[in-house]
Simulated scan of single mutants.
Amino acid sequence: MIKHSDHFHGSDLETIEKIYKIKKEDIISFSANVNPLGISPKLRLTLSERIDAIMSYPDRDYTSLRKCIAEYVHTDVDSVLVGNGSTELISLFIQIKNPKKALIIGPTYSEYEREVSLGRGSTLYYRLEEENDFALNITSLEKELTQDVDLLVICNPNNPTSTAIARNDMRKILDICKQKGIFVMVDETYVEFTEDVQKITSAPLTSYYNNIIILRGISKFFAAPGLRLGYAICGNADLLKEMNQRKNPWTINSLAAIAGEIMFKDEDYIKETRSLIAKERDRVCERLSASHNLRYYTPTANFILIKILKDEVTSMDIFEAAIRKGYMIRDCSTFPFLNNKFIRFCFMTPERNDALLEVILEELK
């Protein structure tokens, strides 16, 4: 048994290898939330043919890549900014806005709080309530959006709850924030996995609101975290200009820029991914419904949050049972407002999902 204070991110395979004596190559990570299909087949076939691109500097404005992204998300090219992963853009945006007090909807990803604190700002959390299935209550949220809050941070769909805010509700939130002088940062890392992307994404709202910025990347949906390519969608020209001026030039290498264009145009891969996740999301939920010793919260993304109802079993018990079979899940006890009764795992291929479910359901008999 490892120390209870030790918890693992989806990329911590070296640590897992050391503690459990399992080769990292043999670990199937249900914790990383990455597309189980792997990288785009078109990218695999064609990127090597463009290797000579590294002999030249990339276009400083990444014009071709930005046009491709604009077509992919159905927005104007001037509203797109690219960076070295969404993490760089989140950091850059928060440095520029330098919020004194940020309200973060949680439980959620810890990096938001870290970035705000680096700028010496303070953070508060708006708590998504378990009894409300972790769905957002806008009336309750509005009460927390006081005049001293200058930034609202939303992950949509949210990690780890896999809940999502529909675009019509996001418009209401933006109206409230606009009246109070609050900027809204929306992380849409997982939006492409949802059944109806256009119902969830806030991208169209950037044409009407100047107090929103949307961040996305290719790490999860396109299974390419190593390429470090992210992008922002924003209709606030002044903000984008300042971000461009402060951003280091050529933060995206030539091959990553080319890879982005290939991936965003691989419609067969995009369609196949969404189909697989939708089918497995429904099928896994159906299997979990048969157990009386757990509760799952209806997922909208490519992962699911589960609460363990069996008294003597903890999230670490499930984690250890799974990892000893070579399956890595997420013990959610370190997320704000969650405890050692919550786990999260992503949807993979049917065979792998079934193998993991056998382990979990056996522990919860």
Score class of each variant (00 low, 15 high):
residue 11 S to E: 15
residue 12 D to Y: 10
residue 13 L to E: 05
residue 15 T to H: 05
residue 17 E to F: 04
residue 24 K to Y: 11
residue 28 I to R: 03
residue 34 V to Y: 03
residue 43 L to E: 08
residue 46 T to Q: 09
residue 56 S to D: 07
residue 62 Y to S: 09
residue 68 C to L: 00
residue 68 C to P: 00
residue 73 V to L: 12
residue 76 D to Y: 02
residue 85 G to Y: 00
residue 99 P to E: 09
residue 101 K to P: 01
residue 117 S to F: 12
residue 123 T to M: 01
residue 135 A to Y: 10
residue 137 N to S: 15
residue 138 I to Y: 08
residue 143 K to S: 13
residue 144 E to P: 00
residue 153 V to C: 10
residue 158 N to K: 05
residue 171 R to N: 09
residue 174 L to M: 12
residue 177 C to M: 11
residue 177 C to Y: 08
residue 177 C to T: 09
residue 190 Y to D: 06
residue 191 V to Y: 02
residue 196 D to H: 14
residue 199 K to R: 13
residue 201 T to D: 12
residue 201 T to F: 02
residue 202 S to Q: 04
residue 203 A to Q: 07
residue 207 S to Q: 14
residue 215 L to R: 09
residue 215 L to K: 10
residue 215 L to Y: 02
residue 220 K to L: 06
residue 231 Y to F: 15
residue 233 I to W: 03
residue 233 I to D: 03
residue 239 L to G: 09
residue 247 K to I: 09
residue 248 N to Q: 12
residue 250 W to K: 03
residue 255 L to T: 06
residue 261 E to W: 04
residue 264 F to Y: 06
residue 271 K to N: 15
residue 273 T to G: 04
residue 274 R to N: 15
residue 284 V to T: 09
residue 285 C to E: 02
residue 288 L to F: 00
residue 288 L to Y: 01
residue 297 Y to K: 02
residue 306 I to N: 06
residue 311 D to Q: 11
residue 316 M to Y: 06
residue 323 I to A: 01
residue 325 K to F: 04
residue 325 K to H: 14
residue 325 K to M: 08
residue 326 G to S: 11
residue 327 Y to Q: 04
residue 330 R to Y: 03
residue 342 F to C: 06
residue 342 F to K: 03
residue 346 C to L: 05
residue 355 A to S: 14
residue 359 V to G: 08
residue 363 E to M: 14
